[in-house]
Design a protein around this nucleic acid. Sequence first.
DNA 1: ACCCACACGTGAGGC
DNA 2: TGCCTCACGTGTGGG
Lengths: 213, 213
Amino acid sequence: MEYENDDRLCVSMEEFFLASENGCSTQRMGRKRSYDDDTREYKSKNLEIERRRREKLSRRLLMLRSINPIISNMNRGTIIVDAITYIEKLQHEVQSLSHQLHQIEATSKETAKVKTHEIDAVEEMKNWGIQEEVSVAQINENKLWVKIIIEKKRERFSKLMEALNNFGIELMDTNLTIAKGAFLITSCIQGKDDKKLEIHQTKNLLQDIISDI
Amino acid sequence: MEYENDDRLCVSMEEFFLASENGCSTQRMGRKRSYDDDTREYKSKNLEIERRRREKLSRRLLMLRSINPIISNMNRGTIIVDAITYIEKLQHEVQSLSHQLHQIEATSKETAKVKTHEIDAVEEMKNWGIQEEVSVAQINENKLWVKIIIEKKRERFSKLMEALNNFGIELMDTNLTIAKGAFLITSCIQGKDDKKLEIHQTKNLLQDIISDI
DNA sequence: ACCCACACGTGAGGC
DNA sequence: TGCCTCACGTGTGGG
């Protein structure tokens, strides 16, 4: 009678439990007795409120279980202990991940700190009257010769070589001279996999790369 | 916690029914009294076990609350709902962090993929009969001249320059030639802040650095 | 038969 | 006062 507005969404066990209880229609014995003797019928006023409270707590417990991917059993106790272990697992995971991330960030900050040591390369180049320059010449059908003079910047040489490698250009007998705030790079280059390199295209490519790094 | 020496015991079944029938609310006192005279003493056998169960569940709930930094109230219900929101927060955090890390890792994998292109530097050096070498010579009171021939490895030149910079050694007019699987590095060096460099110490330092990178 | 987990109704106590 | 939360002892169904 009191169960007719039971809109709980439960899963198998409890649902079955409740359903059987409903179907059997056996009320609790104490309640039944007090209901038979209808002269009294105390009913305690707390009954429905308490029932709502239990219901709400049950819903929340199921909610807690539903967002936990690791469930060993659907006992009330194991739901909580599973939640605890899951929270600990997540905490460790977050800690580990943020540690890794922080470490990576620290190393990048370290290199950034070193970068501040080399601010005046442009000034030095200007003082020595050195101009930036990109020259490309043909050696033979497959090979080109390049000469690059650029401002000295940290990692710039590595980045240049990497970029050329990514564009399918192979470097041979490369030479790098660092002096007076400038990089002087000379190298023979040729395309990988018999790819032909054209002089003007290559020069434009080099200038594009250099302006990016 | 203080329930161990709680000597309130249960009322017998008949007594419970009787109390319900009469609507009389004297159950707890009657319970104690029924324990005092041991002629009745039904005790239901489930009592202690159920008490243990409640106790355990309470402990676990407290445990769940203790590992949760965000607590709005220590109600039984709010503990659970706080745990739910905390788990969701942690899940989002893990997802975000792993996403960031995965992105960074993807870029570093890109560079690692490039590294596989340069596995045979040692072979090439051997084929050309090139030996690794570290030479140091004195130019004047403050300056040394160094010549280094080492196997070509990615980032090795940058690391060497960085290491020397960290050791307080300034490089001038550095020259790097890359050919036949080897790096040929020549440079003038001097100590920063008028620090004197000794030939043998410097050579040992160079060899230590090279063996590390 | 036993054991376990749950829902129940109720009184106590805090605010 | 009333409202809300909790612990209690118990009945009951499933394994």
